[in-house]
Design a protein around this nucleic acid. Structure first.
Lengths: 152, 152
DNA sequence: CTTGACTTTGGAGTAGACTCCAGGGTTTAT
DNA sequence: ATAAACCCTGGAGTCTACTCCAAAGTCAAG
């Protein structure tokens, strides 16, 4: 189970990386084909070998994916690279700042949804309000005002 | 204040709703076919008619979609409905609370990404740090904990 | 040395979420 | 009253992101 070869320098094969990341080997090859995740090297037999860096990379990919970034967008994020001495620095900064505002917007959307779900949850069983009926749309409508001011 | 049964004053046709929401009419019909958004009625010619309620609904759908919910998940969110007097209340509450934790997790992911992008942005041109090179992965690393424990 | 788990490539198939017709009927502005 | 603009249905096509072979090479244990 645990590889003993101390010569291995922590390089892992595709199956191990797949298990670490919780995806299939097919998915890893698919990501490679699409330029998201290349093995750092191959062994004599042509087996893909991955280092800790790639473990980190696949985790980032999955994290970004879980919040709705497309593979193309993730590719862009991963390609972002600041080199202070280069003239392109300003361009990169602008790009990054655009991404930041996208992310902020998404966080705001999620917070709205979370708030509505909280109202929905509070309206249920626990509260003393006369609400006998509530959906997420009505909760969204109720918004920050109008209703419970109960803070945690 | 009190909205009566017939809110039929301002019914719009599919093209108008599409424009309001910034999607195509095809998309609206697609959502209808998948149970996400039905017109509140049809006119004599069979044209779909939508009320303010549906405007709100499509906006919620798009908002949820933009943060990575699938149409199936959105369907579930929209189906969430609390009726205090019903026995199902506890079940619904549990479901809602599960959704809340999913949303919280996504917010946390996005905040991590945002933090990394901010580091990336700060590393660029403005900062006084000796960083001559920075990627989002390195920014992620630098972020909360300096290092991830590689479990093995 | 054999067995079985693992890896390779390439290519086909699938689910989700649209997107784009074709061939018709309806509404509206001039 | 007629053309432009809109709407209808049904079905085919597209794109993304996998997922699943098949045929063959590699490796570790017994």
């Amino acid at each position: 189970m645990v590889s003993n070869g101390s010569e291995c320098r922590r390089l892992v094969k595709i199956g191990t990386l797949a298990q670490l990341a919780g995806v299939s080997t097919d998915t890893l090859r698919f990501y490679e084909k699409n330029g998201l995740l290349a093995p750092c090297s191959r062994n004599a037999a042509g087996y893909r070998l991955y280092s800790a860096r790639e473990v980190q990379r696949i985790r980032f990919i999955l994290s970004a994916k879980s919040v709705g970034f497309t593979l193309k967008e993730i590719h862009e994020l991963l390609a972002l690279e600041v080199r202070r001495e280069q003239a392109s620095c300003e361009d990169v900064k602008q790009l990054v700042d655009e991404k930041i505002s996208v992310v902020r917007q998404r966080i705001a959307e999620l917070q709205r949804i979370q708030g509505s779900l909280q109202i929905l949850s509070d309206a249920c069983c626990g509260g003393d309000e006369p609400a006998s009926h509530c959906t997420i749309l009505e909760a969204l409508n109720a918004g920050p005002d109008e209703r419970l001011a109960t803070e945690e």
